[in-house]
């Protein structure tokens, strides 16, 4: 197999400040700054990867992590071929958030390939997320798991490369379903509201007679 493939749309999701932009920077331009500007809404980068003699074009969508940008997320992960879910190994909360993203992607019916990456592996001594747990979870949702350090550049290429390969493989398995396969979800822009997290929220009215 040789020639060109893609472009594949890869979306990077994860809680705020886990290092999504840094990972992407490291992957695309091999640079790192410990003072990355916060991403507003989303940013977009291109990268061509050489995978077993095939040029694979990736369009990488970096998203804002802050929770309230969540309602904008569907427009980014719609039609995505792969999703890279990033958490911070020193922050347990960010790992829990990954599970929420997975759940949402599943609810939305997107068929994209998932990979989970634990960032900041250079801070192994402060790690709060046990690697075994993360791997068990990744297996349960049929996703790859790896750790990476955007700062030192460890594991970054591997994470993206593995995801790209999975995307390629899934494409090979279902060749008819290229490009427009996920178009059907287009109209169904369901905005995940915060209610989902707290279904039993009391909605009693105000001033009930007082």
């Amino acid at each position: 197999m040789s020639g060109q493939e893609g472009p594949f749309k890869i979306v990077i999701l994860g809680e705020g400040r886990v290092g999504k932009t840094s990972l992407l920077r490291q992957f695309v331009s091999r640079t790192f700054s410990d003072q990355e500007a916060s991403t507003q809404s989303a940013a977009y980068l291109d990268k061509i990867l050489l995978l077993r003699g095939t040029q694979v074009q990736l369009s990488l969508w970096d998203t804002a992590g802050q929770e309230r940008f969540h309602s904008l997320a569907p427009i980014y992960y719609r039609n995505a071929d792969g999703a890279l879910l990033v958490y911070d190994i020193t922050d347990l909360e960010s790992f829990r958030r990954v599970a929420k993203w997975v759940e949402e992607l599943q609810v939305m019916g997107t068929t994209c390939v998932l990979a989970i990456v634990g960032n900041k592996s250079d801070l192994q001594s402060q790690a709060k997320v046990p690697k075994a747990d993360a791997e068990t979870y990744a297996r349960s949702i049929n996703a790859r798991h790896s750790t990476a350090s955007a700062k030192l550049g460890f594991g970054v290429d591997e994470a993206f490369g593995a995801l790209a390969e999975d995307v390629l493989a899934s494409r090979a398995r279902a060749p008819g379903q290229t490009q427009t396969s996920s178009r059907r979800t287009r109209g169904a822009l369901v905005v995940a509201e915060d209610d989902a997290a707290q279904p039993s929220r009391q909605k009693s009215g105000c001033c009930g007679g007082g």
């Binding site: 507003q40 809404s41 427009i75 980014y76 039609n79």
Partner: peptide, 20 residues
Amino acid sequence: LRGYSPALLFSKPLCTLLAG
């Protein structure tokens, strides 16, 4: 355009009130 969505274009200037 493939993948076009109005929010893709406008969410960033709207969220930063044009500043960013």
